[in-house]
Amino acid sequence: MTEKINKKILDDIEQLSKAMEKNGLSELTYSEGKAVYTLKKRENGVFSEFPEIVEKNNKEIKTKNLLENALKSPLVGTAYLSPEPGAKKFVELGQNVKIGQVLLIIEAMKTMNEITADKNGIVKKIFVSNEAPVEFGEPLILIE
């Protein structure tokens, strides 16, 4: 996914460079969706995208991938990261988990619902805090 998007960015830059050349422009800002490109003509005649913009776009892509791969909340309710107040958390960052292992509880519809791991792996990120309200589809935990 990241490689595909990076290739698209490079293609876009190439096309924009050609458009600048053709129209004799020294600077051009172009946006498409969330991506914003600003190109400036260097003195030696080579075009370049600002490096900080590339970095920003890469960060956005990384975050998007994190959210897409995370286990999502199947229901609206309140998240609990430990079985009872003061008890040890179900899982910690960096912990190995197995399919079916309880990761957290969501209280919803008057029931306490154990949310289980959908794959084996390591807990890379916990998106919710204890006793926080969660929405349907909200990322809960990233397992990689």
């Binding site: 619902n113 154990e114 289980t116 959908d118």
Partner: peptide, 13 residues
């Protein structure tokens, strides 16, 4: 009554 469920993906198991 205290009801607890175990959820696997989108199903109560």
């Amino acid at each position: 009554i205290l009801i607890e469920t175990n959820i696997k993906k989108d199903l109560v198991s």
